[in-house]
Nucleic acid binder design. Structure first.
Lengths: 189, 189
DNA sequence: GTCCTTATATATCATTCTGCTATATGTTAT
DNA sequence: ATAACATATAGCAGAATGATATATAAGGAC
């Protein structure tokens, strides 16, 4: 069984496509997983070193167009650890969604401020969805059917979010930014 | 402008409902925001102390049914900081979704292993949605219309995920666990 | 040809947050 | 009685971010 973290396994997974440098791994992540599981340089380089110490990867310095880089390659041991992780029961999704937190305290905002926050957020979601769509040509060219599948999932997810918040905006606008309180049990009559 | 973190503001937000202890704040979070923005005791207690040092909250020890607890209360300064944060442009959502990562490397799994991973994941999603539904009575009773709204959002979101993965499972089963590769440009003919 | 910007490539570090462990006491069920 | 559970807080190792720093190569502007 693998007790590596998810990020450690993403890096192994990227190396399953062939030898890569830390910088190249970050590029793969940016173009594919970053929006559902990101990793920063501050994780990637130390993890590569740790992987090498554990014998999960090996490395060599190469000169590519007159520029040094350290290419990492997965070992058999590394592939076994990666594959073992692939078979484990997946961890539950975790989300950090600030807009949802704000919604929780929305009663503290003035009606027009509520509308403004939602409008701004819908704009953010639209921009992000556009960014996803710009990856599509890359996935068509570089990725396999599963990588294209994930992009499709992302676009569906953001469509769902845009639609949900647009509907909320409509409701808010209908009631001048003040959602009608469904009466509680004790308040009826 | 507020330069507190989101978790620091969640804690202020909880105190906007009235004086609470660290333990009680965790309970509020568990029953409402935890699935879209969680905070652990290891964050909550130190943040409360930091907030007090900065004058955003004040505290007093009280005895509740013969048991000590430290009740924290928001100050004017704290409310101003919280409200300023509420008006700021919300941060983009971040997601950590291990199942999506695995999907990225799904080509490395055997067909029947793919089907098993998806089946297990759908089961996880169903269980989690049930947990959300169990919060509903609490939200009906304790929350305002916005808190109920978020629960509604969560249920819609998990419905979307269950539906999306169920459809993928169907496709996989149709093709014996092996999604047909859409031919790349260079591979046609 | 030099200047500026962008891309490649890696390293370091304070800060944030989690999840685990530990401790202590009150309450409820058996 | 006593075991299990709920309340209440503290501390810490480890993971990850995001910001800064450094250096070199490539490409375009003028």
């Amino acid at each position: 069984m693998s007790n590596n973290t998810t990020v450690e396994n993403i890096i192994l997974g990227c190396l399953s496509f062939g030898p890569r440098s830390g910088y190249e791994i970050k590029k793969i992540i940016n173009m594919s997983s970053s929006w559902f599981y990101n990793a920063s340089y501050g994780s990637i380089y130390p993890i590569l070193k740790k992987h090498e110490e554990k014998g999960l990867v090996s490395s060599e310095e190469v000169i590519d167009n007159g520029r040094y880089k350290r290419l990492y390659q997965m070992t058999d041991k590394g592939y076994k650890a990666f594959h073992a992780w692939m078979l484990q029961s997946p961890k539950l999704m975790t989300v950090k969604y600030e807009m949802a937190v704000k919604l929780m305290f929305f009663a503290k905002l003035a009606p027009e401020q509520r509308i403004q926050q939602i409008e701004e957020h819908i704009e953010q979601l639209r921009l992000f969805k556009q960014e996803l769509e710009e990856i599509e040509p890359w996935a068509e060219h570089e990725g396999d059917s599963y990588q294209r599948l994930i992009l499709d999932w992302g676009e569906n997810l953001y469509d769902f979010l845009i639609q949900w918040f647009s509907q909320l905006l409509n409701e808010l606008q209908k009631y001048d930014g003040d959602l009608p309180q469904k009466p509680k049990d004790g308040q009826q009559l």
